[in-house]
């Protein structure tokens, strides 16, 4: 009964990969916090890009999204990014207007 529903077709990931991903994450985090702290030019764009890179690493490697089939990857990524992106973009569009009116 134990292995009912377990599925071992997934490729085995060696610890080396995880160590590499971890190192990358550390570098990204360090750079992100540094950029924010020092306030370098293009910091906001940079932080957002680094954030997405980190999110990619965590979801694709740690959450094994990489090993899912393409339609699932697409649904997860698009489902979340599009929905949140639209919500954000459209209400911020309105927010800009509100602040302009109050000036």
């Amino acid at each position: 009964m134990e292995n009912l529903g377990s599925h071992t077709q997934e490729p085995i990931v060696s610890p080396k990969t995880f160590i590499l991903v971890w190192v990358l994450l550390m570098i990204l985090t360090g750079f992100e916090i540094f950029a924010a702290y020092k306030g370098i030019p293009w910091k906001n764009e940079l932080i957002l890009a680094l954030m997405l890179a980190q999110a990619y690493l965590v979801s694709f490697y740690f959450m094994h999204l990489r090993f899912e089939k393409f339609p699932l990857i697409l649904s997860v990524v698009l489902g979340v990014l599009l929905t949140v992106g639209l919500l954000c973009a459209l209400i911020i569009w309105d927010g800009i207007h509100i602040i302009q009116l109050s000036r």
């Binding site: 459209l90 569009w93 309105d94 800009i96 207007h97 009116l101």
Partner: peptide, 9 residues
């Protein structure tokens, strides 16, 4: 009172 351009969208 929403942004009129957003309204158009």
């Amino acid at each position: 009172g929403m942004n009129p351009y957003l309204g158009l969208f």
